[in-house]
Computed example of a mutant assay.
Amino acid sequence: MIRRLAPLLLPALALAACSTPSGPSSTPAVPSEKPANMREAGLERVIGKTAAQLTALFGPADLDGHEGQARKLQFVGPVCVLDTYLYPSKTGAEPVVTYIDARLPSGDDIDRASCIAALSRRAAAP
């Protein structure tokens, strides 16, 4: 029975071996260019900025987390929550924001530029 199934199984096993990754990469991929959806008007106040520049704009982060080379800073205001993701552009470089996400406190989506503007006003308030 196995002899009859072998011709059918060998091509399947060979195909499976081709699709198996060879192993984890030794260095994580670092985004080198802004994704297309990060080129919207109003996002330039945050995209490409360092953690210090974000703190100057919004005040201290409400959450500061690290995972590998990535850093996530979260800023929370009464209007929205802004998540900023910072990556070094090259090994040893200071991380800068390459991606942002925004949501209402309820979890629903909000326009990212509107959230940036609202949080900027929060930091400017006495």
Rank of each mutant, 00 (worst) to 15 (best):
M1N: 04
M1F: 13
M1C: 09
M1P: 00
I2Y: 14
I2C: 01
R3H: 13
R3C: 01
R4P: 00
A6G: 02
L9H: 06
L10C: 11
L10G: 03
A12C: 14
A12D: 00
A12H: 00
L13M: 14
A14Y: 02
A14T: 12
A14L: 15
L15G: 13
C18D: 00
C18K: 01
C18I: 04
T20Y: 14
G23V: 06
S25K: 10
T27V: 11
A29T: 10
K34Q: 10
K34V: 11
P35W: 08
P35Y: 10
N37D: 15
M38Q: 15
M38L: 12
R39W: 00
G42Q: 06
V46N: 04
G48N: 05
A51I: 01
A51F: 05
A52M: 02
Q53V: 04
L54N: 04
L57P: 00
G59P: 01
G59L: 11
P60A: 14
D62N: 15
D62Q: 10
L63F: 06
Q69T: 12
K72A: 12
F75N: 04
V76A: 09
V76Q: 11
G77M: 09
P78S: 15
V79F: 13
V79M: 11
D83T: 03
T84L: 05
L86M: 06
E94W: 00
E94P: 01
V96R: 03
V96D: 01
V96Q: 04
T98M: 13
T98W: 08
T98F: 12
Y99W: 12
D101M: 07
A102Q: 09
A102F: 03
R103G: 14
P105G: 10
S106P: 00
S106D: 15
D108S: 13
I110Q: 09
A113F: 06
C115G: 11
L119M: 05
S120M: 11
A123G: 00
P126M: 08
